[in-house]
């Protein structure tokens, strides 16, 4: 297991080969190994459209929706996973569902996502934009885990969500599912 998520990745990718240049919203240019870059389905798609021979020249792929500070974080994640993830054969739907909902978030990814929730959301949006399915899923799972422990009022406050229900509407919705809002009744074990 690696140590801190932010410090253990730079040495994990040392493969020589094609370099892909991308630029962030602010115009900062990053040079990525092809394997790392292609973990983004968007970048992969662009490269395929352009013809891969163009990836090695001075072309820069603009990632106009991703800020540099977020891209730096995503790059850490990409490099780590490019170096550590095994090539996987396509899974059957059942296996994919099991993996999606039953596998815990790996320790390295937990540390990586142990940041302010505003940052998690920004990473999630960037992962969505770049179409990095695994990272997007990890972010969603992390945020969902946080939601599970919060009340409606806390969630509204956390994420700046306005309560746009009238009191009557809110009461009506509450009544529909009032049964699920209480702690499930527990019966003692009989053994």
């Amino acid at each position: 297991m690696s140590t801190a998520a932010s410090s253990s990745t730079s040495e994990t990718i040392a493969e020589p080969g094609l370099k892909i240049k991308v630029s962030t919203k602010e115009g900062e240019v990053f040079e990525l190994d092809e394997k790392v870059a292609k973990m983004s389905q968007v970048i992969r798609g662009i490269l395929e459209d352009l013809g891969e021979q163009n990836g090695g020249d001075d072309s820069v792929l603009p990632l106009t929706q991703v800020e540099t500070r977020i891209f730096r974080k995503i790059l850490v994640w990409l490099k780590y996973h490019a170096g550590h993830d095994k090539e996987e054969a396509p899974k059957a739907e059942e296996d994919e569902i099991i993996a999606r909902f039953c596998e815990e978030i790996p320790e390295w990814d937990q540390k990586f996502l142990n940041v302010d929730q505003a940052v998690i959301l920004e990473i999630m949006l960037a992962a969505d934009y770049l179409d990095i399915k695994k990272l997007r899923g990890l972010c969603c799972k992390t945020v969902a885990n946080i939601l599970k422990t919060k009340t409606v009022e806390q969630i509204r406050e956390m994420y700046g969500i306005e309560n746009d229900f009238t009191p009557e509407e809110e009461e009506e919705i509450r009544k529909q599912t009032a049964w699920c809002e209480d702690e499930p009744p527990r019966q003692g074990s009989n053994h």
Binding site: C140, L147, K148, I161, E170, I173, C180
Partner: peptide
Amino acid sequence: ELLQYVDFQKLLYLRRIC
């Protein structure tokens, strides 16, 4: 997608957010 990771009972509860 985010809400798919939330347990069903909590999901019903979250309908009260907005």
